[in-house]
Design a protein around this nucleic acid. Structure first.
Lengths: 123, 123
DNA sequence: ATGTAATTAGTAACCATTACTATTTATGAG
DNA sequence: CTCATAAATAGTAATGGTTACTAATTACAT
């Protein structure tokens, strides 16, 4: 595996963002730094970074894959009305794993999504 | 809303299956019962049935939506190697909700997916 | 310096899902 | 039992996120 400025840039964009960016949004941000980067390169590197467990991804109501930092233990609340994605803390990750009978040795990633109506929309 | 044989058939196929069928698989099964049913009808009714909370769906590694019964409290273990989807029991649903600070009043559906390597593949 | 294999840019293709429209059909009123 | 009407369907075309492909570029070891 060789160094590439493109891959490094993509990882930084995901790690420095507080949103849940789609491939297209990451592509647009990357173009500010590397004007010639191509969308295919973004997709390929996102998939590689996932395999290396450096980032995670999940699908949302817009039917697009959203990319996120790997090292923060949290889950997502997704509003069925406004489609916004909220981060929610997981206080006791160990306890959660034991409740779900999860063997952490053969487990890679736990993806929890809670769908409902957010506070803004229920007003 | 009017009765339709197509919608009833689609709901029965999902409820009687022990798999996690995709729209295309449901379409093929439905064609055995209603030879002229169209794929668009399957997709439209699956979306309607979801809105009515009669079925649920989730996205998997094949990047297809999988449809499942709504009334069984369980989560899914997805193997990163063979892409198989396993059902896993949730013993104490109430406790899980309280651990995640979930307000059941504004919550529709909890989608939990655990990714890893299944027993068959780790041999 | 130079060879080479990994990576990229740019474009074309793929395919799951949705949109569209003419036709069919469930249902209620007379 | 008609008949009007609006909801639902069948069949097909279009959409759009993602992947595949290929010639050119580039990191890196020798």
């Amino acid at each position: 595996m060789r160094y590439s400025k493109q891959k490094e840039t993509i990882l930084e964009i995901v790690n420095n963002s507080f949103d849940h960016l789609t491939a297209d949004e990451i592509y647009l941000k990357a173009r500010n730094l590397l004007p010639n980067i191509s969308l295919g390169t973004v997709y390929r590197n996102l998939n590689t970074l996932k395999e290396e467990n450096k980032i995670i991804s999940f699908n949302s109501l817009d039917n697009k894959e959203h990319y996120d930092k790997a090292f923060i233990k949290h889950y997502h609340f997704i509003c069925n009305n406004c489609f916004k994605i909220y981060d929610r803390k997981i206080n006791d990750y160990k306890k959660l794993c034991s409740m779900l009978n999860i063997d952490e040795n053969n487990t890679n990633y736990i993806d929890i999504k809670v769908y409902g109506i957010c506070n803004d929309c229920s007003k």
